[in-house]
Amino acid sequence: MVYRIKKKKTEVYALGRHISLSADKARRVIDQIRGRSYEETLMILELMPYRACYPIFKLVYSAAANASYNMGSDEANLIISKAQVNEGTTVKKLKPRARGRSYAIKRTTCHITIVVKDISLDEYEYESLYSFKNPRWKKTAMVDHDVYSSGVVWDKK
Rank of each mutant, 00 (worst) to 15 (best):
V91F: 07
T89V: 11
L15A: 05
R28A: 04
S120L: 05
T140A: 09
S128H: 10
I119Q: 04
Y124T: 09
R136Y: 04
P96M: 12
A52Q: 06
S73Q: 03
I44Y: 08
Y38T: 06
S102T: 15
Y50V: 00
S149N: 10
L129G: 07
A98D: 07
A98L: 05
N70A: 13
M43F: 06
V91W: 05
A52L: 10
M48V: 15
Y103I: 01
N134T: 13
G72I: 15
N77W: 02
L78D: 02
T41S: 11
P135M: 08
E123I: 11
Y69H: 15
V29S: 00
N134D: 13
K93C: 03
K9D: 14
I56M: 02
H18G: 05
C53N: 14
E125N: 05
T41V: 10
V2W: 08
G35I: 11
N134I: 11
S73P: 01
R101L: 06
Y126V: 06
L21H: 14
V116L: 03
N86C: 07
I56G: 00
N86Y: 12
S131Y: 07
S37Y: 05
P49C: 09
V2K: 13
A98C: 03
D24W: 06
K139F: 04
T108D: 00
L45H: 04
I80Y: 05
I44N: 09
N66W: 11
Y126Q: 06
Y148W: 08
S102A: 14
S150M: 10
I19L: 08
A65M: 07
F57L: 15
H145M: 07
G35P: 08
A98P: 01
I80N: 04
Y13G: 01
L15C: 05
V116T: 04
V147N: 08
L15W: 07
K8H: 02
P96S: 13
S128L: 15
R28P: 00
K8C: 03
S128Y: 10
R27E: 05
V2F: 09
R101A: 05
L45I: 12
L94A: 04
S68I: 02
K133P: 00
P55R: 13
D24K: 11
S20W: 02
R34W: 01
R97K: 15
I114P: 00
R51Y: 04
L121Y: 06
K139C: 01
I33P: 00
S20T: 07
W154C: 03
P49F: 08
A63S: 10
Y126M: 08
E127Y: 09
